[in-house]
Amino acid sequence: MSDVPPIEVLAEDFEDLKATVYGFASQLEDNTKKVKHLASAVASGGGQDDDDSGGTGKKPKTPPFILWLSGDQYTAELAALAAWVQDLLIPSYFGEISSSAPWCASWWQHPPAVARLHATWLAWQDLTNPDTCGLTGPSVWHRDHLDPMLAQLRAADGPFAGCMTNPDRPQHTVLPVPPVTPLPAQPV
């Protein structure tokens, strides 16, 4: 007997292979359209447009980059971020404050810190939602978002380094509760 399968089996295998290739081609086409859409949105300076939800006409649920907000929008977003920082981030992930791991009790006055904390908070919202993240979401959040953010913010030469060494600033050794309505970010 021959090891060559009958023509019917080969034809079926060929059709399966052809369907797989067409599926990949379709995915590639969809992804290419999404990339072009995002590139045109970025080029126009608009970031995400009103119809970034796959044609449903709804605006995206996530807020834009926090440093692009102003007025009441910025204040509301910063207040929500401050609650997350105070209630989850600081008690769960922050160790002792030192010159090698600084922290500023007035972190909201440091735009680079606000931007990094906000991005990490947005990722936390997405990656801890069981409806969207799967079982590995929290692990991905720790690895890809929390750990790099903490390394940058708490680096000896990071945005809070001057808070520990500048004589015009108080030494920050206790983590106080941020004000209910944090002040808008100001250049440091």
Rank of each mutant, 00 (worst) to 15 (best):
L38Y: 00
V35F: 03
E77M: 06
E8W: 06
E77R: 13
A11N: 13
A82I: 04
G71Q: 09
L78I: 06
P64F: 01
K61N: 11
P5K: 08
A83Y: 09
L78W: 00
W84E: 14
A43E: 14
F65G: 08
G57E: 07
L67E: 13
L88T: 15
D52L: 00
T75P: 02
D51Q: 02
G46Q: 15
G47L: 03
T20M: 07
I7N: 12
L78C: 06
I7L: 15
P5I: 09
K59F: 06
A19I: 04
L78G: 01
S40D: 15
V35C: 02
E12R: 10
A11T: 12
V4Q: 13
Q27Y: 04
L10F: 03
P5R: 12
F24E: 13
T32L: 09
S92N: 15
I66W: 00
V4I: 10
P5H: 08
H37K: 03
A82D: 05
T20P: 00
F65P: 00
L67N: 14
V21I: 12
W68L: 11
A76F: 04
P64C: 08
D51C: 01
V21M: 08
V35D: 03
K36I: 01
T20A: 07
T20G: 06
D13F: 03
K36M: 03
F14K: 08
D49L: 02
E29G: 06
A80E: 15
K33L: 05
F65C: 09
W84F: 13
P60N: 10
E15T: 08
D50Y: 03
V85C: 11
V21K: 09
A19R: 13
L17A: 12
D49F: 00
T62H: 15
S92H: 14
P63A: 15
A80G: 09
Y93H: 15
A39G: 02
L78S: 01
D50V: 03
D72C: 05
H37L: 00
I66C: 02
L38N: 01
L89T: 11
Q27A: 05
V35Q: 07
P63T: 15
A11D: 14
V85N: 11
E29A: 11
K59G: 08
G57P: 02
A83M: 06
L67Q: 13
F24A: 05
D72R: 14
V21Q: 10
D30I: 06
D16V: 05
Y22D: 08
N31S: 10
Y22L: 07
Y22H: 07
E15G: 08
D16L: 11
S70G: 14
G71L: 09
Q48G: 01
E8F: 09
P63N: 15
W68F: 11
A25G: 09
L89K: 07
P6H: 12
S53W: 04
K34V: 02
G45K: 04
